[in-house]
Design a protein around this nucleic acid. Structure first.
Length: 460
RNA sequence: GUCCCCAUCGUCUAGCCUGGUCCAGGACGACGGCCUUUCACGCCGUUAACAGGGGUUCAAAUCCCCUUGGGGACGCCA
């Protein structure tokens, strides 16, 4: 049997990294087996759902390279399907109408809590044989005794005492289906073979298994993956910083770094840290998923990102960088120039935004001069040398790193001066800063005209 | 409160299923050093963990139990 997995986001917010990781695992499981990976938008919460979020989630999926089969399914378009199945449950006696009001049910729960047991509906309408009516809901006639066992792909068998569960609502008084019912009907009718989701859904599973049984559907395999926590070990939330995938994209994180980072949270393959998409497809195994929650480490993401930046294709980086620089007012940059200095920035950038920060010194007409640096290095003692170096550069017809460096060294040797004397002054003159890539590689990348202009600006 | 899940360096983890090869390995970080014209890259090294207690066993990070801690779920949200 071919594998079919799904990712079922609720469009009440952007795709966050926890959801993204679940999606990655599902995608990997299906793709490595040549199976299908489908999307279902759980938009039944009409108050909080927004079409813009759906678009954002799909965009983040594409960014991460998680492609899906078929068109996404929207739950709001399937209400009649859900109702048809609920009706069949009423007919076969696995569900019943209930006239209890929310207030009455709440009172039952309160009483249970006071009695020290699990809050639940007491099933008083189970055998009343009620029919439809205003304000009435349909409930599952759940087994009263026994245990429901879920054989989880990552946790192994987990048993639940049926007495712990109550007769959950399947259809609300406004005729809409509840989450657990919709999920079961969807997963079953969509032919999902492996349900991969966060382990905050473990307690939903026995309820859903009861619905599968009541409907006569075969059970899929369940795999509950551990959650991602913030540095304080609490459920990841906005106060921990960026949680949405698109925010990382905006920070200049490369998708392959994000993917690599996320997949290693809860999963590992020996001591390997770096995984290409192909290696992931080759080595991923749901059986080697861990069971414990993990803390998202931004430092490791940055390390991974720098690794991928160092390996990335120049044309791609040039495109990415030009976009960021464009937003900062540097439009129409020459691609050739970008590609000349990007290699110097690659080992110095953990994100594309960091690269852009440093690229400013290459693309600005007149890079901002760090005042303290200028005062310290652009002195009466050093300026004459800078002027002389400018003359040497001007005379050079081979504007390459090596001959230029040799020429400057020859000049210094002749005067019995140390290179250190002019190194920082030259750097400040060229970039306005005290930290930068190597001097002569920058000189070559900037080109004669730009270099001379900058030297003359400070040395007259 | 009730139920469920989880538990190895600060963090991600290997090892656990199939006890001995583990005075516990790798990676990120931190710290130190090398390289060096600055900053990085790179290279080398150091730091640091089997939550606690009981068992079982010749032998336990590995198996069992309890405790503790953390997380999650208990909704006419998803």
């Amino acid at each position: 049997m071919s594998i079919v997995t799904r990712f079922a986001p609720s469009p009440t917010g952007q795709l966050h990294i926890g959801g993204a990781r679940t999606a990655i695992f599902s995608w990997l499981l299906a793709r490595q087996a040549g199976g299908r990976f489908v999307l279902r938008i759980e938009d039944t919460d009409t108050v909080r759902s927004q079409a813009a979020y759906t678009e954002g989630i799909l965009a983040s999926m594409k960014w991460l390279g998680l492609d899906w089969d078929d068109e996404p399914i929207y739950q709001t378009q399937r209400f009649d399907i859900y109702n048809k199945f609920i009706d069949s449950m009423i007919e076969n006696g696995t569900a019943y109408w209930c006239s209890c009001t929310p207030e009455e049910v709440e009172a039952m729960r309160e009483a249970a809590r006071a009695g020290g047991t699990k809050p639940k509906y007491d099933g008083r309408c189970r055998e009343r044989g009620l029919g439809p009516g205003p304000g009435r809901v349909v409930r599952l006639k759940a087994p009263l005794a026994g245990t429901t066992i879920m054989d989880d792909l990552v946790h192994g068998p987990v048993a639940f005492d049926n007495a712990e569960l109550d007769d959950m609502i399947l259809r609300r008084s406004d005729n809409t289906p509840t989450y657990n019912l919709a999920v079961v009907v969807d997963d079953a009718t969509m032919g999902i073979t492996h349900v991969i989701r966060g382990d905050d859904h473990i307690n939903n599973t026995p309820k859903q298994i009861m619905i599968y049984n009541a409907l006569g559907f075969p059970l899929p395999k369940f795999g509950h993956v551990p959650m991602i926590l913030g540095p304080d070990k609490k459920k990841l939330s906005k106060r921990h910083g960026a949680t949405a995938v698109y925010e990382y994209e905006a920070q200049g994180i490369l998708p392959e770094a994000m993917l690599n980072c996320l997949v290693r949270l809860g999963w590992s393959f020996g001591d390997q840290e770096i995984f290409s998409r192909e290696e992931l497809l080759q080595h991923f195994s749901i059986g080697s998923l861990g069971k414990s929650a993990s803390v998202f480490d931004n430092e490791k993401l940055l390390w991974l990102n720098q690794h991928y930046i160092k390996e990335a294709d120049l044309d791609r980086l040039a495109g990415l960088l030009a976009a960021i620089l464009g937003e900062r007012g540097h439009a129409g940059l020459d691609a050739g120039y970008l590609k000349a200095f990007i290699p110097l920035l690659q080992p110095r950038s953990r994100t594309m935004v960091e690269m852009a920060d440093q690229a400013e010194m290459f693309v600005a007409d007149e890079p901002a001069l760090d005042e303290a640096a200028a005062a310290k290095f652009l002195t009466e003692e050093t300026k004459p040398h800078l002027a002389e170096i400018a003359r040497i550069f001007e005379a050079a017809d081979d504007f390459q790193q090596e001959p230029l460096e040799a020429a400057v060294k020859a000049y210094l040797d002749a005067k019995e001066l140390k290179f250190k004397l002019v190194a920082q002054p030259l750097r400040v003159a060229l970039t306005g800063r005290t930290a930068s890539p190597g001097l002569f590689e920058m000189v070559e990348a900037m080109g004669k005209e730009r270099v001379l202009k900058r030297l003359k600006r400070v040395a007259g």
